[in-house]
Amino acid sequence: RLIAMGAITELHWVNNYSGSALTITNLEPDPVFAATCPPGRSTFISEQWVPWCSRGPDFAAHHIVIILNGVTFFVWQDTDSDGNWVRLSTAGFTSSSIPPEFVPAEHFPGSALEGGDRNVEVSSGGALRLVNA
Rank of each mutant, 00 (worst) to 15 (best):
L2C: 06
I3P: 09
A4P: 06
T9N: 09
L11V: 00
H12F: 01
N16L: 00
Y17P: 00
G19Y: 03
S20P: 01
S20Q: 10
L22C: 03
T23F: 04
N26W: 04
L27I: 02
P29Q: 14
P29R: 09
P31Q: 13
V32S: 06
F33R: 07
F33P: 03
F33S: 11
A35T: 11
C37G: 13
C37L: 11
P39D: 13
P39S: 13
T43N: 04
F44Q: 09
W49P: 00
P51K: 06
P51S: 04
P51D: 05
S54L: 05
S54I: 05
A60H: 08
A61Q: 10
A61N: 12
A61Y: 08
H63R: 05
V65F: 02
L68E: 10
L68F: 05
N69W: 00
G70E: 09
V71T: 11
T72H: 03
T72D: 04
F74R: 11
W76T: 04
S81G: 11
G83R: 02
N84K: 04
N84F: 02
W85Q: 01
W85N: 04
A91I: 05
G92C: 05
F93R: 11
F93G: 11
T94V: 13
S95Q: 07
E101M: 13
F102P: 07
V103M: 12
V103D: 15
A105F: 06
A105M: 02
E106L: 14
H107Q: 15
H107A: 14
F108D: 06
P109S: 08
A112H: 03
A112F: 02
L113R: 15
G115R: 08
G116C: 12
N119G: 06
E121L: 06
V122Q: 07
S123W: 07
S124Y: 07
G126T: 01
L128Y: 08
L128S: 06
L130Y: 13
L130V: 09
A133G: 11
A133K: 07
A133D: 07
